[in-house]
Design a protein around this nucleic acid. Structure first.
Length: 417
RNA sequence: GCCGGGAUGGGGUAGCUUGGUUAUCCUAGGGGACUGUGGAUCCCUUGACUCGGGUUCAAAUCUCGGUCCCGGCCCCA
């Protein structure tokens, strides 16, 4: 038997219906915020991703030569493709551009809980400016999306990449040595970060300050600590916080230890996590960045984020949230073989009227057909028999209550509106 | 890349330690009992030992390797 390739999944009808349901909630929410959907190719020239993230990602992506000897890669994320699209064809559009996408991405990684080789991301990019309003809009959308799905246990943390970089630079940490330290600070592994900072020549006062600032998480009061390190980031975050409050986004914690893995983030960065997911708990990540110039365009500041759709669904499952699929509205049951043609006319009439309608095509006897209607969650069974047809009518059975009544064919479609 | 646990009909499982008849049970699918009324009951039926090698008279069971799944580490653009 042939299995799914490692790290991929089949989605059966029930699961697919559930996924579509939540996808559409996200689409609607993005639309409410004035974002418009786009789509880019599943595969791109490999160079797009190495330009963005460096040659090392080749180990982590699906890349290959096509028959024309082109270097091709399955997209591992969507920010780079969107920025490519922007540079190629949208750079003269009125700004800001507010774009969102939903699609699968591929990474060649060891699968585990909440991590697949084919996974789905829902994301948004706001292209055009680097200011607090832009960042607030992006965070507000992300927060609203998570909320609209109905996830209960999660938190959003917001920081500023400039604060930490500034602190580390002041402490004398060379730029190329920052990544490793930042990573430890992000996870709040101070015991591991301290020797690294000491080795780089930072004195203990500087280290204490770094730990204090990255270790405090909370509301606006956290910003007061920034007085210790005068920086434009402080006033920027104050402004951003104010706008978020005005937009009624109140569940965002300030955490100056938030670090995103990539260099191209320029200012605000944020993440959302669902604690129930354990190791792969991050469900959303983003920030403000500048990428377009890497792809040959002018330099334009953007803010974007991506939501891990599979993970957020997983988190909702862990919260015990269930999804009830919808069956058809009407299931047409011919009482006997000699009325099958009439039954076909009736199901066709219903469908023309926009009613989701199904019909027995297994040539089952009536009792079995009703049983089947029940097992596919039909709301009503439309029983087509000779007696009723003589009066241009059918019997409509409510499958939940068992109530039956006779309905004239002319009135049938309208009873579903 | 590293560590651990797994894989038995479509789904869920028993059997494995101690190799031995036709591989257990529940559920699901198809048909029937029921000639115009579902979810009940009964009967019939479909359908599985992850793959490959080894040990053995004999392997679901022991052994080695592959594949895939689950959990953790690393990483996470």
């Amino acid at each position: 038997m042939i299995q799914c390739p490692r790290g991929t999944r089949d989605f059966l009808p029930n699961e697919m219906e559930r996924r579509r349901h939540y996808e559409n909630i996200l689409r609607r929410t993005a639309g409410i915020f004035g974002f418009r959907e786009i789509a880019t190719p599943i595969f791109e020239e490999t160079e797009l991703f190495t330009t963005r993230s460096g040659p090392n990602i080749l180990n982590e992506i699906y890349s290959f030569k096509d028959k024309g000897d082109r270097d091709i890669a399955l997209r591992p994320e969507l920010t780079a493709p969107v920025m490519r699209m922007f540079v190629n064809g949208m750079s003269n559009e009125p700004r800001p551009l507010k774009l969102f996408y939903f699609g699968q991405c591929f990474r060649y990684e060891r699968p585990q809980s909440g991590r697949y080789r084919e996974f789905f991301q829902f994301g948004a990019e706001l292209i055009g400016n680097a200011n607090a309003e832009t960042d607030a809009e992006a965070i507000a959308l992300a927060a609203s999306m998570i909320k609209s799905l109905g996830l209960l246990d999660y938190k959003i943390r917001m920081g500023h990449i400039g604060v930490l970089r500034g602190l580390l630079a002041t402490a004398g940490i060379p730029r190329d040595g920052m990544a490793e330290v930042l990573q430890k600070l992000d996870k709040k592994l101070y015991d591991e970060a301290r020797p690294m900072l000491e080795a780089a020549g930072a004195d203990s006062d500087a280290i204490d300050l770094i730990f204090k600032i990255t270790g405090t998480v909370g509301g606006k009061e956290v910003l007061d600590m920034l007085d210790l390190v005068p920086d434009e980031a402080a006033s920027y975050l104050r402004e951003l916080t104010e706008i978020l409050e005005a937009m009624n986004v109140r569940n965002v914690e300030i955490d100056l230890g938030v670090v995103r893995g990539l260099d191209y983030y320029t200012g605000m960065v944020f993440e959302a996590e669902a604690p129930s997911l354990g190791a792969e708990k991050q469900i959303c990540g983003g920030g403000s960045y500048s990428l377009s110039e890497l792809f040959g365009g002018e330099k334009v500041f953007s803010t974007g984020f991506a939501i891990g759709f599979d993970r957020i669904l997983l988190a909702m499952e862990k919260e015990g949230q269930t999804f009830e699929g919808r069956g058809v509205d009407a299931y047409v049951v011919p009482v006997s073989d000699d009325v099958r043609t009439d039954a076909a006319k009736i199901v066709s009439m219903l469908r023309s009227g926009g009613v989701s309608a199904d019909i027995d095509i297994m040539r089952r006897k009536m009792a079995k057909a009703l049983k089947h209607a029940s097992s596919v969650n039909a709301k009503y069974a439309i029983i087509v028999g000779k007696n009723e047809l003589a009066e241009d009518s059918v019997t409509v059975r409510d499958m939940t209550t068992g109530d039956q009544r006779t309905v004239r064919l002319n009135d049938l479609a309208s009873m579903f509106n």
